[in-house]
């Protein structure tokens, strides 16, 4: 795979002195789904806005398909579709007209058949003559996606596409994203829903305070940072940790009924067998055992908290 977007040492300081991005470098591969994860105000939207040409960078360089986004803005912008975070639509437009507008704005000649297909794929064809203000929030979101796809972009930016969207529509959105990927579109989405990144992304980037903390393959990230915990419920509650177990990576729950053992599943020796033996030797009766996997959410929280 080749990098379709290459960001190097990108920084942005707003007029009020706020530094939204600090030397961010990132390569986005053609055809992948990259999720940019970060809390509110982390710099996700600023990053997207610079690549799309809405905000001027203070420093650094961005190329799209090998071309500079400032010098070759006509070419780079024509390859990109953007679905903004807010439901920004002209209230008095109609669905069909607004898609035609977007297509023309991006320099593409009218193509009724293509736009019809876009609307059908988004289940909006029967709403094509509706006023935008008459649509529900979910439909408006889909119209925004339709507008972004109207000029057949090769890259799609989705800025928090499922913020405030119900579960069913979120699933539909994920299916649509996968379908777009299958047709060869590179997708960059920002989200603060970790489950979203976990469900659809190929790679995950974590941004906080304008810094890109890491970018990695989703599976590798979870493999690298994912710890497991073994929750051992015991028959008789303990007031404190028995002295014989004190040197192990064990915690006692507040109610004294559960021992929590944290381990790395990728090590050759997890120490579970030994631990269970030690528990029996200490005279404890095991009632139940449960193993849990660290979710991307916990990985994320750990990363964000590690760098205040």
């Amino acid at each position: 795979m080749t990098a379709i977007i290459s960001i190097s040492n990108l920084s942005k300081t707003y007029a009020n002195g706020y530094q939204a991005l600090k030397n961010v470098s990132l390569d986005i591969q053609s055809g992948e789904i990259l999720a940019l994860l970060g809390p509110n105000g982390a710099g996700k939207t600023t990053l997207i806005s610079i690549v799309c040409g809405i905000v001027n960078a203070t420093g650094g360089k961005v190329t799209v398909a090998g071309r500079d986004i400032v010098q070759d803005y006509r070419l780079t912008r024509s390859l990109i579709g953007l679905v903004p975070q807010e439901l920004t639509l002209g209230a008095f437009d109609r669905v069909w007209n607004t898609l035609c507008f977007s297509r023309g704005l991006f320099g593409k000649k009218p193509d009724r058949a293509y736009l019809e297909q876009v609307l059908r794929d988004l289940s909006l064809w029967d709403k094509k003559d509706s006023m935008l203000m008459a649509l529900s929030g979910g439909m408006k979101r889909r119209v925004l996606i339709g507008k972004a796809l109207a000029h057949e972009p090769r890259i799609l930016f989705l800025d928090e596409p499922t913020a405030g969207v119900d579960v069913e529509l979120r699933k539909d959105m994920w299916a649509l994203v996968r379908q777009l990927q299958a047709s060869g579109v590179t997708i960059i989405l920002t989200t603060h829903y970790i489950e979203e990144a976990e469900a659809i992304a190929d790679r995950v980037g974590v941004i906080n305070h304008g810094e890109l903390l890491l970018v990695d393959d989703k599976q590798a990230l979870m493999h690298k940072l994912g710890k497991r915990q073994l929750l051992i419920e015991i028959e008789t509650p303990l007031a404190e940790m028995p002295a014989a177990l004190a040197d192990r990576p064990l915690e006692l729950s507040a109610d004294g009924r559960t021992l929590i053992y944290t381990y790395d599943p990728h090590r050759p020796q997890t120490g579970i067998d030994e631990l269970l033996q030690a528990l029996r030797d200490a005279g404890l009766t095991i009632k139940d055992v449960l193993s849990t996997k660290t979710s991307l959410e916990e990985i994320f929280v750990n990363l964000v908290q590690a760098k205040p």
Binding site: C52, G53, I54, L82, T88, S102, G107
Partner: peptide, 11 residues
């Protein structure tokens, strides 16, 4: 309304 984003991101 914020729809200016489209104008600014267009070629």
């Amino acid at each position: 309304t914020g729809t200016i984003y489209e104008l600014l991101s267009a070629p």
